[in-house]
Design a protein around this nucleic acid. Structure first.
Length: 228
DNA sequence: GCGACAG
DNA sequence: ATCTTGTCGC
């Protein structure tokens, strides 16, 4: 799918989700991925410009392995449930600029925890073929019981009778995050990776690194790609 | 009909 | 997402 046939209406976007959903693979995720990538997008106040960033970290020590930032324009209006269409073109452009293939993509948003089970993490996973999952700060669908107060405590995120994700406490007594599977991933692995990436803060180091990178990118700052 | 609604 | 001040706490 190119720029020209990118959906322009909600009906077209819904049709794309329907067409791609059969290609989603839900299964065991990589148990020891060497690298994990954080993806995020920042918007200019004029609503016309954005910067997408992907930061690849070493899973073990969280060192930055690679960074890519691109500027662009929102490709779709913001519509809950169709959020992916807004950011995917810019995120794919950033992915093209990476010099390494991250083992897992960690999205700022949801995967299966979506009204049609095809959130950003699923969509990006299918388009790239990479294992993926989403870590959202707020819920989009589903209900849940409050998880325990300790880091690592979790409860099921249930929508329409099915478990679509986990409400995971990444820090003691701090508001939990919403983890859901994207592509070639299972919920336990997604939660384990998320906990491994939150030794200090509520949000994964991947998300934090990508957030900083795209904000800098919005300001036109130079993005230094680490030498290898 | 009335809210809710990833970023 | 982004706009925003102070404020509580380590």
């Amino acid at each position: 799918m190119t720029d020209d046939d990118w959906p322009r209406t909600e009906a077209e976007a819904l049709a794309v989700q329907d067409a791609l959903r059969p290609r989603l693979l839900v299964g065991p995720g990589p148990q020891r991925p060497a690298t994990v990538a954080g993806l995020d997008v920042a918007y200019h106040e004029d609503g016309e410009r954005l910067a997408a960033a992907i930061v690849v970290l070493d899973t073990t020590d969280h060192r930055v392995v690679d960074t890519a930032v691109v500027q662009g324009r929102p490709a779709f209006p913001y519509v809950p449930g169709l959020f992916a269409f807004r950011e995917i073109p810019a995120l794919l452009a950033a992915l093209d600029r990476l010099t390494v293939r991250p083992d897992v993509l960690i999205c700022d948003g949801h995967g299966l925890a979506h009204p049609r089970r095809f959130g950003l993490a699923c969509h990006l996973g299918v388009l790239t073929g990479r294992p993926s999952f989403g870590v959202g700060k707020t819920p989009l669908v589903g209900s849940w019981a409050p998880p325990g107060e300790r880091r690592g405590d979790r409860s099921d995120l249930v929508d329409d009778g099915e478990t679509v994700g986990a409400v995971l406490r990444t820090r003691d007594a701090v508001k939990p995050v919403f983890v859901s599977v994207g592509h070639r991933m299972d919920l336990d692995t997604a939660c384990a990776l998320t906990l491994g990436l939150t030794p200090r803060y509520r949000l994964p180091e991947t998300t934090r690194a990508a957030d900083r990178a795209c904000r800098d990118g919005l300001l036109g700052k130079d993005v230094t790609v680490p030498r290898r």
